[in-house]
């Protein structure tokens, strides 16, 4: 037997056909509308393009004027306190409610005693002094060369930050933002550390004095290299140029240059105590160019031996003739 019509489902009536026709028309209209809306919305190459922002970081306290102090001794924390006191106290620079970033040099996963990185004693004492001056928060950061976690742990900087109540910011890939430095030739559409700067009101750079095979010396100005992301090693093709641009990029509140021991050979990595020389000096300044010009003397150089200092001085980014700032000299106290 043949089963009678109709089969399962709705019957092909005129009403049903009309309904289906309307539905088909609506589907065609919707597809066409969607296609028109998507029409070349992102032309090829659109996704590689970035919106470069102005990456400059200006945290200078200009009202305090240019100030500089050179302390001598072996106790880093004590030298720091005395140098700051000679500059009129940290309260001139750090006030109540300030959010302070300490940009350390944590480039290598080596112990502090080898002098390739910022000494943890300085990190701890700076963080303590900032808090005592009323700072609401202190964070410590760097974009190191070696594995970031290892760097912060093995240098002792991480432990110092924790012990003094400071936060530690370890950069991730997303922490950087493409920026183009106005007037810059090198920092163009380049990833610059951005995320930890949110809410920051003061910036202190803290770096050791090191010889550097390529740049001649690595001190507070070269330390800003750690704010760069991407394949930044290509800037070694123009190391003086990039250090000068970093000086245009960053205006810190203060810099602390640690020449208690200076790395005389095999810089910037070192690796042996034999690379270090006791130079028993700690420099605090509002002007990184002046601080580094002074630090150069610990390496047996003058600012004239370091082209980036000469150029930065000529461009008015700082004072290479640091003696003209009449730095306060703070000798070691008998305790």
């Amino acid at each position: 037997m043949i089963p009678p019509d109709p089969g399962p489902g709705p019957v092909a009536t005129r009403r049903e056909f009309f309904r289906r026709g309307l539905r088909a028309g609506a589907a065609i209209a919707a597809t066409g509308g969607l296609g028109a809306w998507l029409w070349n919305r992102h032309p090829p190459g659109d996704f590689g393009r970035t919106q470069a922002s102005d990456p400059r970081k200006d945290f200078a306290v200009r009202a305090a004027g240019p100030r500089m102090a050179i302390a001598t001794g072996r106790d880093r924390a004590a030298m720091l306190r005395r140098a700051l006191a000679a500059m009129g106290g940290i309260e001139r620079f750090i006030g109540r409610g300030d959010r302070v970033m300490l940009k350390v040099n944590a480039a290598f996963a080596t112990p502090a005693i080898l002098g390739a990185t910022t000494h943890p004693d300085l990190v701890a004492e700076l963080a303590r002094l900032c808090r005592a001056a009323g700072a609401a928060s202190v964070i410590v950061t760097d974009n190191p060369i070696n594995s970031p976690e290892s760097c912060f742990e093995l240098t002792g900087i991480g432990a110092a930050a924790r012990a003094s109540g400071a936060g530690l910011f370890v950069p991730r890939q997303g922490s950087f933002r493409a920026g183009t430095l106005p007037g810059g030739r090198l920092i163009r559409d380049w990833p610059v550390l951005d995320e930890p700067f949110a809410g920051v009101t003061k910036l202190i750079g803290v770096a050791p004095v090191k010889g550097h095979q390529r740049a001649g010396a690595s001190m507070t100005m070269k330390n800003w290299y750690g704010l760069l992301g991407g394949r930044r090693n290509q800037f070694h093709q123009d190391i003086d140029g990039i250090i000068v641009e970093l000086a245009m990029l960053v205006k810190p509140t203060l810099v602390v240059l640690d020449g208690t021991d200076s790395m005389m050979t095999n810089g910037p990595t070192g690796g042996s105590l034999a690379d270090l020389k006791a130079t028993n000096t700690l420099i605090v300044a509002t002007d990184p160019v002046a601080a580094d010009a002074c630090g150069a003397t610990l390496l047996g150089k003058t600012f004239r031996d370091l082209p980036y200092l000469v150029r930065a001085g000529e461009m008015g980014l700082g004072t290479a003739d640091f003696e003209s700032l009449h730095p306060a000299r703070v000798p070691a106290q008998a305790s």
């Binding site: 088909a24 589907a27 065609i28 597809t31 066409g32 296609g35 998507l38 029409w39 070349n40 919305r41 992102h42 032309p43 090829p44 659109d46 996704f47």
Partner: peptide, 19 residues
Amino acid sequence: TRSLFPGLFWAFATIALTI
């Protein structure tokens, strides 16, 4: 890509035909 490369709008003809 959340985008339609211009020439691909031809596909609309196929879709309309199929609908």
